[in-house]
Design a protein around this nucleic acid. Sequence first.
DNA 1: ATGGCTTTTTATAAAAGA
Length: 269
Amino acid sequence: MRLATWNVNSVRTRVDRVTTFLEREDVDVLAMQETKCRPDQFPYAPFEAAGYQVAVHGLNQWNGVAIASRVGLDDVRTHFPGQPAWASQEGEEPVVEARALGASVGAVAGTEPVRLWSLYVPNGRELTHPHYTYKLDWMRALTRDVTGWLSEDPGQSLALVGDWNVAPLDEDVWDMAVFEGATHVSEPERAAFRALAEAGMVEATRERVTNYTYWDYQRLRFPRNEGMRIDFVYGSPAFEARVRSAAIDRDERKGKGASDHVPVIVEVA
DNA sequence: ATGGCTTTTTATAAAAGA
């Protein structure tokens, strides 16, 4: 089973690029982030024409997550149980944002199903911004739920994939000096990311690929290869044992109409 | 020396992204 995750930065703008990628790379399951639309705005037809079922979660133009699968798509959840809510304005009612979508995939392929979560971790904005606290709370709540799931069923193939908005190591950004005092590289964020490993999860691409997964649109970041490694596939031990290879598709950052992230692809037995 | 982009919206300026 070929499984991919990609922050597409608007699925409506990039649907042709996404479906072309699915066919070219022979992808069975794609977890998308930043789809930036509600379900009634989602371009289902091109995915269905290509043979994929799609589960979609989106509340407005912000965030948005989806999973496309041609090997089964069951037990869809639009948030993880402990997922915190966010109020964009003081006094506004907090909302559980469209940043997580869970589904079981792979049953049709005749393999053990994978419990897959497409995740778009909050950005954090600035170290002093309430969004940063929200980001840390969000990751800690996820880790608590994952710990519970693994304790209930230690042998399950669980995969948490997506845009983590954390560069876990200094080498995951091109120049640490540029990130002095910024989000994505702070120790609390990195500790929150590592906590998933401490809970028993294994990041599948760390030892298999070393490329960046994101390059800012601004300042010629891509031509200069000034990128960040922030998109990851975190798997349970049973999932990790099934991983055969992993890669990014760097070509997807090239040309007109590219997302600022590239897909991460994992081959799973 | 500085900033350079892209997407969204009952749009046409502002928010968000990282």
